[in-house]
Nucleic acid binder design. Structure first.
Lengths: 373, 373
DNA sequence: ATGCCCGTAT
DNA sequence: ATACGGGCAT
C-alpha cells in the first residue's frame, strides 16, 4: 500500500496545474523511491516526466511498486479542496481502485478526506533519453516564461540558438520578427560530463566525490526523511539505480514507448565515468547533475534558494533548433514550481526543459521542428 | 532616417495601451521636432492627438519628415516584449517598410530586437482646434478616471458643468443618478488668454512680462461674454500672433462627430459671475498652478513634479456640456501617463482632455452630445 | 511591477 | 469548464 504525506498540498496543486493541460490521464507510478509520472501530451508531441522523491515527503511508504491510474482533471478538482498549506496525505491500498486524500490544516482543527476513483491506464512507460546534451542553459524560470510568451505573440515557433555569443531566441511572425539574445558575463564553459558534475557537486559539499550521495540525503533534512530513503541512497551508491535511471537506456531515440524500460534496475553501479561520452549506460550519470541542483536545496529544500537564479550556459558545440512556442508556453506553467529552469539541447534531439524543485522535478521533452513545418 | 532612443520603454507601452483601443492604425509623423500622431477613433467620434517631443528622447535624430504607418495592435504586441525599464530604440530607414525596435536591459545582459512591418496609411491630418476655452479644469488624472468610471456604471453620458460653485459631473441612469461636485478652496479665476499664459510662463522663467498685462485687464470685465471679448482682444492686439485665435475660427468645424455642435454660438449663458468680485486683474493669482502645466513645452521634465496634482479650475463663463462616458472612460486610460489631466471646455465645442507628461502629450477631443441623444 | 479578480472567448 | 486577456489593487 501507499501512504505518502506531503507537508504542503500547495506543491501538488501547482504541479497539477502545470501539467493538466498537457496530459489528461496518467499513471502515478509509486515505488519505495517515490512517485513517478510519465506521459505523452494529448497530441503525442511532447513528453512530460514528473518525479517526486520519497525524501521530499514528510512521510513516505510504498510497500511495493504500484501504478495509480489518475485522471488529472479529477485530481485537480479534488486538490482544489485543499488549502495550500494543508498537509496532504495520499493513501492507496494494493490493487485499490480509489486514491484516498486527507487534508489536515496546520493547526489540525480541520480534516478533510476525499476518495478519488482510479482508472486503468495503459502503462506505456516511455523511454526517456538521457543524452548528454551539447548545450545547457540555466535561467530564471520567469524569464524563460516571459520570453516564450512574448515570442508566442509574434509567431508559432522559436529558434533557440546557443553559441559562444550567448543564447538567442528568435521568432518570425506576420507582422513582426523578434530576437532575444541573452549574454553571459563570464566565459562560456563547455558542458560538463556527468562525472565532472559529480565531482563538482562533491567539491561543493566539501566532500569527497565518492560519497556525495550521502549528503543529498542530508539536504532533505528539512523534513526528516525516513530511513528507508537513506537506504535507497546507499544502494544507489553501489547499484546506483535511481528511479530516473530506469527510464534512461533509450536515450538516443526520441520517445518510444518501451514498456520494458523500467525493468532494468540493477545496472552496474555508476558508470558515469564509463559512459560519459554518449549515453550508453550512462544512466546514472545524467542524474548526478540533476541531483546536484535538486538536492542542493540543502536548506529546507523549498525552492532553490541557494541558486541565484541567474542566467548561465555552457556548450560543447553550436546548437540551433526550432520548437513550437505553443508547447514551450505550456511548459512554462511550471514556473510556479521553482524559480529556475534548465534547458538542455543537442541538435536533432528533443529539447529538455527541466524544472527542478526541491522535492522532485518536472521535465518536458519536445522534439524540434524539422525544416519549416 | 529615424533613430530615436527612449530611456524607458514603459512610456511607449503605456502610451500605446492608452490609445490602441480607440485607434487601430495611424501614422507616426516623424520630424526633427519629434513624433506626432493624429487620428479619429474608429467610429469617428473622438480625435486623438499625440506628441512626443524630440527633447523627450535620450537621443533623437530624424533627417527628414517621414510618416511611419503603424498598426497599433502590432506595435502593442512588439512593445509588450519590452520590460518597462528597458531602453528602447526606434529605427527606420527612409522609405523603409519596417520599424526596428531594440530593447536593451539596463544591465545590458539582454538585448531584444524586433522588426515590425509598416503599412501605408492615408494621412488625413486633421485640423485641431486651438480654441481658447471658456473653462479649464485641472485635476488628478486618477480622480478623473474614477469619476467617469463610477458614473459609467450608472448611465451612458455625463454632464460636465463648470460654474463658480465648482465643477460638477452628473449622470442619470435608470436605477440611479449620480453627481460629483469638485469645489475649489480658493477663488475661481477666469481662463487666461494665450497672451496671459505666455506672460505667466515668462515670469516663471524669471523674465519680464511683455506688455501683455495691459489688455488683460480689459478682458476681465468682459468675463460674461467670452467670445466677443476674445475677438475684441484680437483686434486690439492685432499684432499679436494668437495662434489660437486663428484656429479657433476654423476649428469649430473639425469635429462634427455630432455635426451641428460646431458653431460656437456660445453665449454668455450664466453671468452669475458678472457681479462677483472676481479678481479683476488678479488673474495671475489664482492661476499659477495652471499655467505651470500649460506651458509645459519647455522643460523636459518627466512627470509634472512641480504640479501638486490638485484640483483647480478657472472659467470665463458658465459651461455645461454632455459627453458620452464610454469615450471618457477610454480617454482615462492615459491616467498611466501622468498624474494630472486637464479638461478644457467651451459650450458647443469639443471637449479637450489633455494628458501632458514631460516628454509630450496625449490629447483627446470629444464633441458634446446635443439634446438628449 | 506583481498578483488577484472579473469578464470574455474557446 | 477551462484558459487567456484586461483591469484594479497592493
Amino acid at each position: 500500500m501507499l501512504e505518502a504525506k506531503l507537508a504542503e498540498a500547495g506543491m501538488l496543486k501547482r504541479l497539477l496545474d502545470s501539467i493538466k493541460e498537457l496530459v489528461t490521464d496518467a499513471n502515478f507510478e509509486c515505488t519505495e523511491e517515490g512517485i513517478n509520472l510519465q506521459a505523452m501530451d494529448n497530441s503525442h508531441v511532447a513528453l512530460v516526466a514528473v518525479h517526486l522523491q520519497a525524501a521530499g515527503f514528510k512521510r513516505f511508504r510504498c510497500d511495493r511498486p504500484m501504478p495509480l491510474g489518475v485522471n488529472l482533471g479529477s485530481l485537480t478538482k479534488v486538490l482544489k479542496c485543499a488549502k495550500d498549506d494543508d498537509e496532504c496525505t495520499l493513501k492507496a491500498a494494493d490493487e485499490a481502485d480509489v486514491l484516498n486524500l486527507v487534508y489536515e490544516a496546520k493547526n489540525s482543527d480541520r480534516i478533510a478526506e476525499y476518495d478519488m476513483k482510479l482508472m486503468d491506464i495503459d502503462s506505456d512507460t516511455l523511454g526517456i533519453p538521457d543524452t548528454e546534451y551539447e548545450a545547457e542553459v540555466s535561467m530564471p524560470s520567469a524569464e524563460f516564461a516571459r520570453i516564450v510568451r512574448d515570442l508566442s505573440a509574434l509567431g508559432e515557433s522559436v529558434r533557440i540558438e546557443v553559441s559562444k555569443e550567448g543564447v538567442r531566441f528568435a521568432s518570425e511572425g506576420e507582422s513582426a520578427n523578434g530576437s532575444i539574445l541573452l549574454k553571459k558575463d563570464g566565459e562560456v564553459g563547455r558542458v560538463k560530463t556527468a562525472k565532472e558534475k559529480k565531482a563538482d557537486k562533491a567539491r561543493a559539499n566539501g566532500e569527497e566525490p565518492e560519497e556525495d550521495d550521502e549528503e543529498e540525503e542530508e539536504n532533505e533534512d528539512g523534513e526528516e526523511k525516513p530511513k528507508k530513503v537513506k537506504k535507497e541512497k546507499v544502494k544507489k551508491e553501489k547499484g546506483d539505480e535511481d528511479v530516473e535511471m530506469e527510464d534512461e537506456e533509450k536515450d538516443e531515440e526520441e520517445f518510444k514507448a518501451n514498456s520494458d524500460a523500467e525493468d532494468e534496475k540493477s545496472e552496474p553501479s555508476d558508470d558515469e565515468e564509463s559512459g560519459k561520452k554518449r549515453k550508453k549506460k550512462t544512466n546514472g550519470s545524467s542524474k548526478p547533475a540533476k541531483k546536484a541542483k535538486t538536492t542542493k536545496g540543502k536548506g529546507k529544500g523549498k525552492k532553490d534558494e541557494d541558486e541565484k537564479t541567474v542566467f548561465d550556459f555552457s556548450m560543447n558545440s553550436h546548437v540551433s533548433l526550432t520548437f513550437s512556442l505553443k508547447y514551450l508556453v505550456n511548459f512554462a506553467k511550471s514556473t510556479s514550481m521553482t524559480n529556475k529552469v534548465e534547458l538542455r539541447l543537442s541538435n536533432d534531439v528533443p529539447l529538455l526543459v527541466d524544472y527542478d524543485f526541491g522535492q522532485g522535478y518536472v521535465r518536458y521533452y519536445l522534439a524540434p521542428k524539422i525544416g519549416d513545418e
